[in-house]
Amino acid sequence: MRRGDGGGAAVKLARLAACALWAVLPAVACAAPGAQAILAASDAIRNPDRPFGLTVTLIEYRDGRQTDTTTLGVYSKADANSGQFRSLIRFVAPPRDADKLMLKNGNDLWFYDPSSKASIRLSPQQRLLGQAANGDVVTVNLAKDYKAELAAEEDVQDGERQNRHCYKLDLSAASPDVTYDRIEMWIDTASSRPVKARFYTESGRLLKSAYYRHYQAQLGVERPTETVIIDGLDPNWVTVMRYSDYSWRDVPEIWLQRDYLPRFKPE
């Protein structure tokens, strides 16, 4: 029989789920002016300011061929104290993973398989594996975890191949727990929209690039409905993350714990 609650499966699911959370990086109000405020404003573009739900579809390409598609239902809510988002994720597709669940609450990451009824704690490393190392971005609370410096103002091409006048921010880690030592981020000077980002290892190697695109009105704000992630080593490794079905959701605090995982069923 299949190995339903395997740590290996959990690892991939964790990666994918974490990917999904790219969409829900918490916006942290930051009073500091300048670069830090620009960064906080771009966080607010991506992330609704009240508990919400959405559907995330991840489509992965290798060498131009579509190799994986995963659909997730995500509910998120910010912690009133830390500003960190806590999220419940339910796997919708592919069929073998349907109804598996994830809970991300800071460094607490739990995986639940409804077949084996097992709730397994995952380590952050289990989110960093493979190509969807983009998943670890969810641990990055940009305005909170990074110190931003204004590196330049320049015109760059956005995900729709339009020229945008952007602030180029250099983000350096302000917390030892973050995944990336450095991030370059381009933010539209007029709208505060995130346009693109590049993520680097400590040694300066490019891990991935991301384009935030297809802005649409969602929950009262023009937000990106797609992120295109390009692997830093293998540019033919591309993941498209689509966000749909945005809606305000009541997410009671009592849901955000391991023991509620078997109970969680998104509407």
Binding site: T57, Y61, R90, V92, R161, S209, V228, I230, R242
Partner: peptide, 19 residues
């Protein structure tokens, strides 16, 4: 590389799997 990746992403069909 980025342009090629974005062009590839443009071809992604818009469909959402329902639970």
């Amino acid at each position: 590389d980025d342009a090629a990746a974005l062009s590839l992403a443009d071809t992604t069909p818009a469909s959402t799997q329902q639970a």
